[in-house]
Amino acid sequence: MVEWRLKEINLAVKLILRKQEFEVRPGMTLLSALKKCNILPESVLATREGEMIEEDEILKDGDIIKLVAVISGG
């Protein structure tokens, strides 16, 4: 049971935007993942392991995608 749960957790992609966290299934593109999380691609930059990735990138099991908000006021 525990092993099954761990396996299920690994089969997820995490997207982090400021203090919010989202989870999507691996195998989809970054663009689809952003759409699923209701995040406009125009308003963020995405990085994986410190490298910038673009919207056609396929997200893999265990990926942690850090999203950088690009809109500022003033």
């Binding site: 125009e42 308003s43 809109i71 500022s72 003033g74």
Partner: peptide, 21 residues
């Protein structure tokens, strides 16, 4: 900037990004 949260300029930027999308 803590004072820019909810500002009109950010609201307009978000609207324009919807259009851009």
């Amino acid at each position: 900037c803590p004072f820019s949260v909810g500002s009109t300029s950010i609201y307009y930027k978000e609207m324009l990004n919807q259009l851009e999308n």
